[in-house]
Write a protein that binds this DNA or RNA. Structure first.
Lengths: 147, 147
DNA sequence: ATGGGTGCAAAGGATTTGCAACATT
DNA sequence: AATGTTGCAAATCCTTTGCACCCAT
């Protein structure tokens, strides 16, 4: 029995049939934990797979999210992005530069699968923090001192 | 000293200059706690204010959110909506029908203003649950039993 | 008269759709 | 052959922008 790698395993386990494109996209997410947008993923894979189309990236990312092989993040209006890390963790988004940062040390909401509240079946939890990231905070401070 | 109502107070307190349109939109949010989209708000006010334009609704809702007179909610991809309730509470979104439900009884993340993590200044926290709402769960159950 | 607020029409982007070509079993 | 996957082009939808008009101070 051949031992396939992590990326392949993730697809199989999630019930997503592997293909060259799907493998590449899943792999991209896992090797680029920067919460890329659809377009980032597309741009990042264009060299490897010159025939790749945006449509496929859209479809595949949606597919991965539906199968819980990735997480769709929609903190920011008009800035959907994806996270290959499906372990519970908190996201921080900077209101100024739009950057998204993982906060692993924060107590992430424990995924309590299929807990029900008022009949509503909970399958996922996401905790977002919003504010000013370290870089932007430093910049603002510098500007204030300059003035 | 005249005593103005809640809607008016909210605008003033938030530093938003009242106007007929702004008052109507703020009022709509407070009287329709259903997390309306921009378009819902627009449709809902067209009768009252026939000259109202979508642009104004967009601008005003953004303005209200910026002044913390309302909350912008972007759980769903491409489905931005607004909540006039600015008290901390948890949102539940149904993956099937897209409905958003308030969960007041859940422990909402306590807003810890200006706490800093790794230099990132936290100004807001939002906790989302995603899953299947009571209605959709019931429907699914019925369908299974039918088959 | 001046500054902010509003509304129209047009522009801009992101995402989806329909469909034909292709790959894989 | 059959089924599922991909990719192009076009369509669609949401949101923003530029600008002129209007209202209130």
């Amino acid at each position: 029995m051949e031992q396939k790698n992590e990326v392949y395993q993730r697809l199989i386990k999630s019930g997503v049939r592997p293909s060259v494109q799907r493998y590449a996209i899943m792999n991209y997410l896992l090797t680029h934990p920067i919460h890329p947008t659809v377009d980032k993923v597309y741009q990042g894979l264009c060299d490897q797979i010159p025939t790749l189309s945006r449509t496929t990236v859209y479809n595949t990312l949606r597919l991965l999210a539906e199968h819980n092989a990735a997480q769709m993040i929609t903190i920011d209006d008009h800035h959907v992005c994806y996270d290959g890390n499906i372990n519970p963790h908190v996201h921080f988004i900077c209101k100024k530069c739009g950057k998204i940062i993982d906060l692993f040390d924060e107590k992430a909401p424990r995924i309590r699968k299929h807990v029900t509240i008022d009949g509503n079946v909970i399958e996922e939890e996401q905790l977002y923090y919003k504010g000013l990231c370290a870089d932007c905070a430093a910049k603002e401070k510098a500007e204030r001192e300059e003035a």
